[in-house]
Each structure stands twice: as structure tokens, then as C-alpha cells.
Nucleic acid binder design. Structure first.
Lengths: 185, 185
DNA sequence: CGAATCGTTGAAAGCAGTCAACTAGGGTGG
DNA sequence: CCACCCTAGTTGACTGCTTTCAACGATTCG
């Protein structure tokens, strides 16, 4: 099991036909995968330089056997993972391209905010294809959606990221939970 | 935390606009939700008659504190949950309607097989809307896809289920992992 | 038997995917 | 330092799958 101390890692599943499903973007302070997963069913690639921190499985197991608190910690981590995955299911199954992108940008901004103070300028170090594969879209559609959001004055496209000028937390909720209908019109 | 001893339960998230995302169908012998999840973020409704078996949280915690094996058991359960959810992500993000339905039928058949001997006749006790919400489709699309699969002699539509006449395990793989392209044509 | 819901079928529209061409950016070598 | 190349990203045109709206059968339950 590994933890990420610096950089950005992209966890994905290869679909054997060349397409990929990006499962998660891992930020510093988060775990790469689940502990004790015998056979990792996801691959990982670094976005830029990273430094990781390994926990030997045996040692982790000893720690867990010794202190029940450790076990509960890992279970709570697992619960959050499940919840995240299910929220992503909701997004992938029910949201339009614009809703997916909006929810991603707001969520990404919120996650970066947990690492330290951030401005409205949101860096996007990963490739367009990574974001597209995360959202279940094609890079072309992602690009078009960015352009559309910029025309609506909701974002501004920067060299290596975007600036949020109209999207707010509520928009994330609106994107994945609420709005009047689903997709289309 | 609850376990299901008889019947079928449908776990879903309500999206506040009337739509739902069905997260999982729970079969006898499986858990409803995750242990220790403070606030369940999914709802559940029974499909037909069910009998559940409750585990008081405190007792479960004592059990876990007492035996490290118990903790590992729960973590392994959580890992499977995460993997299941991620596989579903792959399906929702990348598969066509036909692939989703095919993968669902094969997977459902396989899960029923773990409960006891089953024939090629697969019962579908849940409503069409439940299946549709699970697969991220509309009931109309699901119905059309069923009809299309029947015309291709891959299934036969029975009164309360379907009979698999051409779908095999490999088709599930083909549906969620392989084929030449993605959706469309 | 009637009513209400569920499921199916039909027709039309829209969003995203595909294919293709073009632009921008980054890195390398001359 | 500039020219070149290669990749990433954008934009355009078009196809088509899925959704939407609507009406029609089927089933279940009172």
C-alpha cells in the first residue's frame, strides 16, 4: 500500500481496447488504492513528478492487529471510497457533459482547497484525455464543453487550468443531484 | 448494519429531481450498505418479501476490536464494494445500451448461480425501472434493447425474466472490457 | 370487471461520438 | 537562436444512439 506525499497520480482501468476509465485523481495526503488489495485492479500513472511513501503490507497488518483504532480508520477510508465511487456513478449515469464538467471543476477546486489556500484559478495539471476519461467523455466533447462554459462566462480558460468565474458549490449539487430534468434541453 | 437473509433489496440514491441511481441489487447472504457508515447515503427498498438480520453497531465494534480477523473481513468486504462500484463506473461511462444490458444479465445470472443451481432461465423480480436506473438508461431504451437482443436470438423474454440463449460469460467481458470500439455502430 | 400502473412500441429531436482538418505548444537539433 | 517536428488541443461537419413525448397493450389489484 502506498500513500502519495507529493504530486498528482491518476488511477485508471485499461479497457483492453485502448480506452481507459480514470477512476480517481489522487492528491498528496491520500492513499493509492486500497490496503490489502491482493491484486490491484487499477493502474496508476504520475502526472508530473511525484513522491510516494510505501507501507509494507505485513507491517500494516501488524499495526492493524495491534490497534483496533487503525482498523476502524481503514474501514472509514474504505467507506469514503465507496461513497465517492457511487457519486461518480451518479454523475456518469445521469449528467450531461456540461454537468459533468461543472461538477468536476467545482469538486476539483474544493479538493485543492483542502491542501491549502487556493484562488479561483484552478490548475489542471493532467491531460485533457485524463479528464475526459474520468468523466466518460471524449476529449473533443470536453474541449467543446469548456468553450461553451467560457462563452457563458462561467469559467475562463487559462494556459494550464481554468478560472472559476460563475460556478459555485451549489452548482456541483445542481450538477449531480438536483436540476429540473436530466440532460437534454 | 444489516444483512439480508431472504428476498431482494434495491439500494438507490434519490436525485431530488425524481430520478434515481440504483447502486446495487442485494441478494441473500449479502450486507446492506457498509458497516459503521454513520449516515447512510443510499436508500433501500424491498423487491417482494424480505427478511433482514440486524447487527447492533456496538456489538459489531466489540467484535472487531476483539478479533483482528473480523476487521480484515470487513476491509475485504469494502474492497470488493469499491471494485464493484468501479466496474459499474466503467460500464456506465463506456458501454452502449446493449452492452450494459448484456453485462447486467450475465452478471445477474452469475450472482444467482452463487446462491444455488440455476438454469439458463434468469428471473428478474425487480421492476424495469429499477434495472434501467441501475444501468443509467430509460425504461423505454431498456425495453427496446431487450427486444433487440431477443431478435438476435441472444435471449428469450419470459413472463418474469429472460432466458439466456446466446450470452455467455465472455460476453460480459466483451461488454465491459473489450470490443473493437466503444459505443455506436 | 374496472382502474391504475407497468411495460412496450412508434416517431421525432438532441446530445455526444466519430472523422477530419487545423492550430498551438514544447522540445530537439541544426 | 531559429527551424522543424511531434504531440496535445481545438474546431467543424456529420452520423446515430439514446432520450423524449405520445399512444397503445398487458398485468395486477381492488
Amino acid at each position: 500500500m502506498f500513500g502519495l506525499s507529493e504530486g498528482l497520480v491518476c488511477l485508471h482501468k485499461a479497457l483492453r481496447d485502448g480506452r481507459r476509465q480514470v477512476v480517481k485523481f489522487v492528491l498528496p495526503g491520500e492513499f493509492l488504492g486500497m490496503p490489502f488489495m491482493e491484486l490491484y485492479k487499477v493502474s496508476a500513472h504520475a502526472v508530473g513528478a511525484v513522491s510516494v511513501c510505501g507501507f509494507p503490507r505485513d507491517e500494516l497488518r501488524r499495526l492493524m492487529d495491534a490497534s483496533p483504532g487503525m482498523a476502524r480508520l481503514l474501514i472509514n477510508f474504505a467507506i469514503r471510497e465507496v461513497d465517492l465511487a457511487q457519486e461518480q456513478q451518479v454523475l456518469l449515469a445521469n449528467a450531461s457533459a456540461e454537468q459533468r464538467v461543472g461538477a468536476f471543476l467545482v469538486g476539483w477546486h474544493a479538493r485543492l482547497a483542502t491542501l491549502g489556500p487556493v484562488s479561483k484559478a484552478v490548475p489542471l495539471p493532467m491531460r485533457r484525455r485524463d479528464i475526459a476519461d474520468f468523466l466518460g467523455l471524449e476529449p473533443e466533447t470536453l474541449s467543446r464543453t469548456f468553450a461553451s462554459l467560457e462563452q457563458k462566462k462561467l469559467i475562463r480558460i487559462d494556459p494550464k487550468g481554468v478560472t472559476l468565474t460563475g460556478l459555485a458549490r451549489k452548482d456541483a449539487r445542481r450538477c449531480c443531484i438536483v436540476p429540473g430534468r436530466r440532460r437534454h434541453r
